[in-house]
Design a protein around this nucleic acid. Structure first.
Lengths: 216, 216
DNA sequence: TGTAAAATACACTAAAAGGTGTATTGCGTA
DNA sequence: TACGCAATACACCTTTTAGTGTATTTTACA
């Protein structure tokens, strides 16, 4: 195709300064048509379903419904809509999770206009795009331990996450057991399983792991 | 004063999309003159010292030198320069820390252009400004436990921070003692002192506290 | 519908952390 | 200079967590 109709964008970010800012940056571009904004994931999904959006610029951390869930829903309902993730943080786990959810591009917030336009161009041509800064980072992380594409991530189960949160709040096995109507030994088993699967030594490092991985 | 020369701004944020965005938002305002940008705290301080800046819009989390330190230096070197903090997070501790460092305003990133212009207006008239959303939040947090203005913050000493980091890394009292050439009981005492002063129950909640307060 | 995960539960022992109280030394500053 | 705080150190006793291994019952899904 040679002629390209102006791209109808939706910018989803809970920070108004950012949606405004990105709008201003892009509104002068001749390839860009209308620009809508959404301030949470739910809002983004609603607008995508109602309007004739071509491409969504999606933040990850949003209230009500986060960028991951919103992306999944959008890609399920309207797979032709492109999703570009713009994130502060970009560790391997998050990038792979978002790409698996169907995102078409992943760029960091500290990249500028050029990078953003490049990403829009690529995804509108049906290509995937990950900004070089991130993919390098990703590469070093991946080659650290697991050479396979993306999936070796040892993840915690829902129950385990529930328990690590209570642990981080200072509850003992005993108190957690009472709260969840479980035996103390069960809670203890969950704790030990987490330590084992994450190769951590004790509860302190487990809580740090949880904090680092945004589980708290 | 009635006549006001255009305000020379410096926008300090490590995310180019944000500096660009805010620039675009403000550049059409007639009260605003030149707009410079900086991408870390060091850079911001340098530009403030070299150029004739009136007001700095400052992010907190920046590499090299963070917003807190940069604000302190700027206010020490050039107290007449106004500093407006724009932050994602805004818990009581951070707001009070920044204001104590000499910041003139504190607004949240999810406020828009109007709020930003209001803050600029206020600080240029020599007033302090905290956006309503934050001050409400602040108020509920303060009234929780300590009714005084801002200073009841129980802070950890340098040694304590050093130790909590090692704890979060999974080291036991014994291992920390070896590493820092201390007695095990000393390390244990530090740990207990932290629990007491922060009114926490155990190491898990202490690590969470540290993570929440960006000590790790 | 069989199989793998996940969630549940227990035993036994060792190690670590928590609760309370005390005490000495050095350093900055009101 | 006296006072407070930070850093160091110890005793005694209790509770919690860690290490290792086993086992039953759901649940999900290929």
């Amino acid at each position: 195709m040679s002629y390209q109709s102006p791209i109808h964008l939706l910018i989803a970010d809970d920070h108004q300064l950012i949606t405004d800012g990105i709008s201003r940056i892009l509104e002068t571009e001749k390839t860009i048509g209308e620009i809508d904004t959404a301030h949470n994931g739910r809002d983004a999904v609603d607008k995508v379903l109602l309007r004739d959006i071509d491409c969504v610029i999606m933040d990850i951390n949003m209230p009500v419904l986060n960028g991951l869930e919103a992306t999944k829903i959008i890609k399920q309902e309207k797979p032709h809509i492109k999703v570009i993730v713009v994130s502060m943080l970009c560790d391997a786990a998050i990038v792979s999770k978002m790409m698996k959810a169907g995102a078409d591009a992943f760029i960091n917030k500290d990249t500028g206009k050029t990078e953003l336009l490049k990403a829009i161009g690529k995804v509108m041509q049906g290509e995937k795009y990950i900004s070089p800064a991130i993919s390098n980072n990703l590469f070093t992380h991946l080659t650290d331990r697991n050479v396979n594409t993306s999936d070796t991530k040892k993840h915690l189960t829902a129950r385990e996450v529930e328990i690590i949160r209570l642990i981080a709040d200072g509850l003992t096995n005993h108190e957690i057991a009472d709260k969840l109507f479980l035996s103390i030994v069960t809670v203890d088993t969950h704790r030990k399983n987490m330590l084992a699967k994450l190769q951590l030594k004790n509860t302190a490092s487990l809580v740090k792991y949880a904090a680092d991985h945004k589980l708290l």
